[in-house]
Design a binder for these strands. Structure first.
Length: 486
RNA sequence: GGCCCUAUCGUCUAAUGGUUAGGACAUCGCCCUUUCACGGCGGUAAUAUGGGUUCGAAUCCCGUUAGGGUCACCA
């Protein structure tokens, strides 16, 4: 059997769109699953849209997601170059071949004529605006004269009318188009660069791409590509058009309604494992109930046949859930290094906490966070004394005699050298026993005093992590602040 | 508007002619826990619509409706 070769072929717009990520991922999974090759090709044939650093950025995002390619602009390969801007001569050569065969022709029409034509056709309420094949009738001599005069030209595909163009899509089945609805597409622009259609077909052929897996927005231009393959007499790849990713209002996923760039999600603290896992499930499932996947499991189970046809809404809540799931499965040592990296970006960067202390924070918070940054932002009391006290909890838990209970607890704690979690708990039980009060009467004020909050890990974990001196200080401060304000 | 694609809980989806239409996220309730979370148990919630075909339709066919894509010297 022929080797499976697939490609991700983005145009460098400046960032990797999550829809692009999903396309890249399915290509990658399909290649890995079938022991094929995954290729990155950059479609940079629009000189007007050149963005500085866009390719580097794209590659960064791809690699961050673990989508390593076998061939590409920065890794090389036997089918390069992998930047279309470096393959211009190839496209020209094959466009000329098409002209010689009568399947394409020079067009010297000025933009003004095209504009007028378009307006005229719209005025006539024609179902579709199409080029009128005006330049197809130019004589050989005329064409040669125009070329000699250096008149600007484009090369157009010569579509034959009244033909059915039928192809099979792996995801959608048989799709049929009428050639009457297909315009004489420009293949080579007046600046000598190819359009998408030309470059794409030529490259897919010479890069020996076996399966074209791309977004549904390409479905309606596929007949043009089919025509090209047929005119060249080249073997066609198999096609698979993926359903689109949608906004919550079911329009095509767009910047206006949230983040679309992979780097945005990275910056917000999403794990690459979670993003990949989530995006994989938008439009595909293995047919079982598994939803939590690592990359290797996705590779094992992926198949194009199980890709859905309908568009999928990008639902942040489910992504958040998956992020929390993946975070919890991460080894504490890895979480530690991620947390340290994050702390560097906060005002607490000079605290120099020991790994041991941070590990304890991680352990106590792990079940309570969705993002790494929450190991800091949801429990700032581990890093600094509370600046304020949650009002609702103060009202509910800070009573007339609360400070008396807390002082008794504090005094008792002060006597112990290096109290452990158990010491705190034993002392606590002793005090509530002596005072003959319910545990809640002390536990909630204590939490409020040392954290300023009403939620968080077990109180004795917090006390142990904070340590005796800090606990004592915070109790004193809380009594001062809260009794005063009452 | 022409052409093309699509249609199961709010969302992601399972069920490829016979199921009380299943799971997950979200949501609600209970349990666990004197906090919050995690976890466990349970609830609300879907086959867009009208016709066929069939003993039997979410599933096959046709129409309607709705949504999306595409109609550039952008990809």
């Amino acid at each position: 059997m022929k080797e499976i070769r697939v490609r991700f072929a983005p145009s460098p717009t400046g960032y990797l769109h999550v829809g692009g990520l999903r396309t890249a991922l399915y290509n990658f999974l399909f290649a890995r699953k079938n022991n094929g090759k995954f290729i990155l090709r950059i479609e940079d044939t629009d000189r007007n849209r050149f963005v500085e650093g866009a390719v580097e950025n794209l590659i960064n995002s791809l690699k961050w997601c673990g989508l390593n390619y076998d061939e590409g602009p920065d890794v090389g390969g036997n089918f390069g170059p992998y930047m279309q801007s470096q393959r211009i001569e190839l496209y020209k050569k094959y466009a000329e071949e098409l002209i010689n065969k009568g399947h394409a022709y020079y067009c010297f029409c000025k933009p003004e004529r095209l504009q007028a034509l378009r307006e005229e056709q719209e005025k006539q309420k024609l179902p579709q605006v199409k080029y009128d094949k005006h330049c197809l009738n130019l004589s050989k001599e005329e064409i040669q004269r125009n070329l000699n005069d250096n008149k600007p030209f484009v090369i157009r595909l010569n579509v034959i009318p009244n033909q059915k163009i039928i192809f099979n899509d792996i995801i959608r089945g048989t799709v049929e188009f009428d050639s009457n609805n297909i315009d004489d597409q420009i293949l080579i622009k007046s600046d000598g660069y190819p359009t998408y259609h030309m470059a794409n077909v030529v490259d897919d052929h010479f890069m020996e791409i076996s399966h074209v897996i791309r977004g549904e927005e390409w479905l309606s231009s596929t007949p043009k590509h089919i025509l090209l393959y047929e005119f060249f007499n080249w073997e066609k790849p198999k096609f698979a058009h993926l359903p689109l990713l949608l906004n919550p209002d079911r329009s095509k996923l767009s910047k206006r309604q949230g983040d679309v760039a992979v780097e945005d999600y990275r910056a917000k603290g999403y794990l690459q494992q979670a993003l990949v896992n989530f995006v994989a499930l938008l439009g595909w499932n293995a047919g079982d109930d598994q939803e939590f996947y690592y990359m290797n499991e996705l590779i094992e189970k992926f198949s194009l046949e199980r890709v859905n046809k309908a568009g999928a809404v990008f639902d942040l809540q489910k992504l958040n859930w998956l992020n929390a799931e993946h975070l919890r499965k991460l080894d504490d040592k890895i979480l530690l290094s991620m947390l340290k990296d994050f702390i560097l970006t906060t005002p607490y960067s000079n605290l120099n906490y020991s790994d041991d202390k941070l590990l304890k924070i991680i352990e106590s918070m792990k079940e309570r966070v969705t993002f790494i940054h929450e190991f800091v932002n949801n429990c700032k009391y581990f890093y600094e004394p509370p600046k304020e006290y949650e009002q609702k909890s103060v009202e509910k838990n800070w009573k007339e005699d609360t400070h008396i209970h807390l002082i008794k607890f504090k005094v008792e704690i002060e006597r112990i050298e290096n109290p452990t979690k158990e010491d705190f708990e034993i002392t606590f039980n002793k005090i509530v026993g002596e005072l003959n009060i319910g545990k809640g009467k002390l536990i909630h004020p204590l939490r409020l005093a040392v954290t300023g909050q009403s939620t968080g890990p077990g109180i004795f974990d917090i006390l142990a992590i904070l340590g005796k001196d800090e606990v004592v200080k915070r109790i004193e401060k809380a009594i001062q602040d809260l009794n005063q304000s009452k």
